[in-house]
């Protein structure tokens, strides 16, 4: 199931074109429930949330025993795709470890159906993917990290005591060495 959250006016405006077309196509005359503030598009395997920064923020500041790895990427970003195997391997090996990986895609809203979801399906990408769609980058980039110039790939690793930010590519060893510091 693909559910695309639509509870922000900016997002609503941005996505209205492709979503409307897609929803009309899929569900015909049926009106999506306004109450749920969520539009549901038929699909069997993938759920993608589209968030603005205010909705993403709580993923970046959790206060518990888990170490969070937040990778900012996009399907069209070559170095991002090149480092994905390291993150996929890390995710596959989490087991009982208190670690969590979140892939934050910066694919444009009109690329979600055409590019991102097919990419996830084709690759059978296991880690959770959400889309960050918030055009006012000058406001939110420094909130992710003051060290971030805005280039992707970029990765934030944090727990309740510590935060490290990397505007660079990872391989598996580097990722493991980074996680050992937590």
């Amino acid at each position: 199931m693909i559910s695309i959250k639509e509870n922000h006016p900016v997002l609503l405006n941005m996505k209205i074109s492709y979503l409307n077309i897609f929803i009309l196509f899929i569900i015909g005359c049926k009106q999506p429930s306004q109450k749920a503030e969520e539009k549901i598009v038929n699909s069997k395997t993938t759920t993608i949330e589209v968030l603005d920064y205010s909705e993403l923020a709580h993923h970046l500041e959790k206060q518990n025993d888990t170490t969070y790895v937040i990778n900012f990427w996009a399907t069209w970003c070559k170095p991002c795709v090149e480092e994905l195997p390291a993150f996929e391997k890390m995710h596959a090996e989490i087991g009982s470890k208190k670690q969590k990986l979140l892939l934050v895609s910066l694919d444009f809203p009109n690329q979600i159906e055409k590019q991102l979801i097919p990419f996830i399906k084709k690759r059978n990408l296991q880690p959770e993917v959400i889309v960050l769609s918030d055009p006012d980058t000058n406001t939110w980039i420094p909130k992710v990290s003051p060290e971030w110039s805005g280039a992707i790939p970029a990765t934030l690793v944090y727990n309740k005591n510590k935060k490290l930010f990397f505007e660079e590519s990872f391989d598996y060893n580097k990722l493991q060495n980074t996680l050992k510091q937590f």
Binding site: P79, T137, N138, I141, G150, A151, I152, E167
Partner: peptide, 10 residues
């Protein structure tokens, strides 16, 4: 000075 998302220089 402002910040924006961009593609890292290759």
């Amino acid at each position: 000075e402002t910040k924006a998302i961009g593609c890292s220089i290759k």
